[in-house]
């Protein structure tokens, strides 16, 4: 097993301490490490980006590891492990989409380590970006080329690129947070989940260098609204999503979000318009699925993903019936 290059660790005791340590060059926040350790071990990033300082958020007190319901609103600390979210009866009772998404993320071991904050901030899994030793110096690393455009792009974006990058956001919990209209509370501000990833590459989130996620807040579901999450992956027990979809539908409203189809979670507004206020049945769900992918543009090898995305939207809607 490859060893990890030398770095300095800062065990932050407070959010303020973490934030100030993150102002240093090449300082990265470290939560469960399931994404970061791999990135470091395989040296996928160029030296200009490689972590030199890891700011350990697990030592912050009072801990950011909690799940609570206050005045009908769900509050989850950024350092809460995915497995704890998946097992929480509170989350399961009213925020089914997030409960399911957390449960279907990665493998049990990774869920026992990986946190919600880390899951929404994780880097893309594009195989060009991730190849060992920075073999592909792509646009996301400050290069000039997206190697997926003319290369192996069977799992890449079906809604075009952002700054000519065709990578997709791999998070399972992200679309659930968008569908459930969550807010992301950082050390600086509160951001609507939908806007959290609305940023140009090479960044993955709108977070600034010295900003960390503290909490995720989700409003209680309006009456009659049901939510669900569905995921399509090669092996259901461990793999990243090929396409996933979360939906929250009822009381005349609908919020539907796909992920792993675009640079950031992709809100399927056309599907929402198509299904909102209608009775959910196979025909209406099918029509909404088809509406979701109007405007999709296939790359050379991923036309099949468009069909999968339409199917995922249909399935998510039917699960809200």
């Amino acid at each position: 097993m490859k060893t990890v290059k030398k770095f300095t660790r800062v065990n932050a005791k407070t959010v303020e301490e973490a934030v100030s340590a993150l102002r240093a060059a090449n300082a990265w926040a470290m939560a469960g490490g399931t994404d970061l350790v791999g990135t470091m071990r395989f040296e996928i990033l160029p030296d200009t980006m490689y972590p030199k300082i890891l700011v350990n958020l697990k030592t912050i007190a009072p801990t950011l590891d909690y799940i609570k319901e206050e005045k009908g609103m769900l509050q989850i600390g950024a350092l809460t492990r995915l497995e704890d979210i998946a097992k929480s009866s509170v989350v399961k009772s009213k925020w089914a989409a997030l409960s399911e998404a957390a449960h279907k993320t990665a493998s049990p071991h990774i869920r026992e380590m990986g946190t919600l904050g880390g899951n929404i901030c994780q880097l893309t899994r594009c195989w060009y970006f991730r190849l060992h030793d920075n073999r592909f110096f792509c646009v996301r690393k400050g290069g000039k080329t997206c190697f997926a455009i003319s290369g192996e792009n069977r799992y890449h974006s079906i809604f075009g690129g952002v700054s000519a990058c065709m990578a997709v956001n791999p998070s399972d919990t992200a679309p659930a947070l968008v569908a459930l209209n969550a807010k992301i509370v950082t050390s600086k501000r509160t951001i609507n989940a939908e806007e959290f990833w609305a940023v140009k590459i090479p960044r993955s989130t709108v977070l600034e260098n010295d900003e960390i996620v503290k909490e995720v807040q989700i409003p209680g579901p309006a009456s009659g609204v049901k939510s669900a999450f569905v995921k399509f992956a090669l092996r259901s027990s461990i793999d990243f999503p090929i396409v996933n979809c979360a939906a929250a539908i009822g009381g005349g409203t609908a919020r539907i979000c796909l992920n792993a189809v675009y640079n950031r979670p992709y809100r399927a507004t056309k599907a929402e318009e198509s299904i909102a206020g209608k009775a959910i049945d196979v025909a209406s769900a099918h029509a909404a699925g088809a509406a979701a992918v109007t405007g999709a543009i296939a790359l050379a090898m991923n036309k099949w993903k468009i069909q999968v995305a339409a199917g995922m939207v249909k399935k998510a809607i039917l699960a809200c019936a």
């Binding site: 097993m1 490490g33 399931t34 350790v37 791999g38 492990r81 497995e83 493998s107 049990p108 071991h109 990774i110 026992e112 380590m113 461990i238």
Partner: peptide, 20 residues
């Protein structure tokens, strides 16, 4: 982090020692 062969139980949780 993809195989589980390095699993240990740490403070009650099955975790991957290769990613820790």
């Amino acid at each position: 982090g993809a195989c589980g062969s390095c699993t240990v139980i740490m403070d009650g949780r099955p975790v991957l020692s290769c990613m820790t």
